[in-house]
């Protein structure tokens, strides 16, 4: 489904070139939970941006269902993200409106009429256990609730892959674990692939495959399910 094939990305600065991602190959299949661990500056977020079609690789390519998305034009890449990807963030990135407004937003961008978008958003909030908090704004929700709203929002547009950027980074260990479990379960239920970058080593427990990322390069982590899921390198 989502496939990064020998992807390289450099940042050229004054007097130096930073090799953010070096010849990385990786795939995320339906229902798979793939985790990338690594310190700050290791290239994890760059990898997510490449997967989302936001950055263009110097070499290699990113494919979705076999189609090259790494050199798509701007609007085409936007449509690719809208149709196939969902996003979960460390800082939740909730809009100033209510929970239901937040979850309905991707649907509205996808041409769903406002009443239907809100109805469906309410249903999505129900699946993450927040049906009674639908009209609350971000300020009125706890950290864990905010991240559940963010997950509902990521899934509202029926994505096939969720890209998660440090989703537990702002949560305590108990709520972090709940969120990881929720993502994992949802992934299983609907055959959605998840590509998560994180510092949180507990994520390995939920991962089908886990990698360590360092200086732009991937290496499999022993003990994860990597060996039997066909990592390409």
């Amino acid at each position: 489904m989502l496939e990064l094939d020998h992807v390289t990305k450099d940042y050229v600065g004054p007097g130096e070139t930073v090799h953010a991602v070096r010849d990385v190959s990786l795939s995320v299949e339906p229902g798979q939970f793939v985790v990338l661990l690594g310190p700050s500056g290791s290239g994890k977020s760059t990898l997510l941006l490449l997967a989302a079609g936001i950055l263009h690789p110097e070499s290699g390519c990113v494919r979705f269902d076999g189609q090259d998305v790494s050199h798509m034009k701007d609007n085409a890449a936007a449509i690719y993200r809208r149709r196939h990807l969902g996003f979960v963030f460390q800082h939740f990135n909730l809009m100033p409106g209510s929970a239901v407004d937040n979850v309905a937003l991707p649907l509205r961008l996808e041409s769903v009429r406002p009443p239907e978008a809100r109805e469906r958003a309410r249903e999505m909030l129900g699946t993450v256990g927040l049906e009674k908090r639908a009209e609350h704004t971000a300020d009125q929700l706890s950290g864990g609730e905010r991240q559940r709203v963010a997950i509902a929002r990521a899934l509202a547009g029926s994505p096939r892959v969720v890209l998660a950027d440090e989703p537990t980074g702002n949560l305590d260990s108990e709520r972090g674990a709940q969120i990881l479990k929720m993502l994992h379960d949802l992934c299983r239920e609907r055959d959605i692939g998840v590509l998560m970058v994180t510092h949180d080593s507990r994520a390995i427990d939920f991962a089908d495959r886990a990698y360590q990322m360092k200086d732009g390069q991937l290496s499999p982590i022993n003990g994860s399910a990597t060996e039997h899921t066909g990592m390409r390198s």
């Binding site: 936007a78 990135n93 961008l109």
Partner: peptide, 15 residues
Amino acid sequence: RFIGYLRLIGADRAT
């Protein structure tokens, strides 16, 4: 940030 987020989740330039 707002527009960056919209662009990330797939809002096109027309929007």
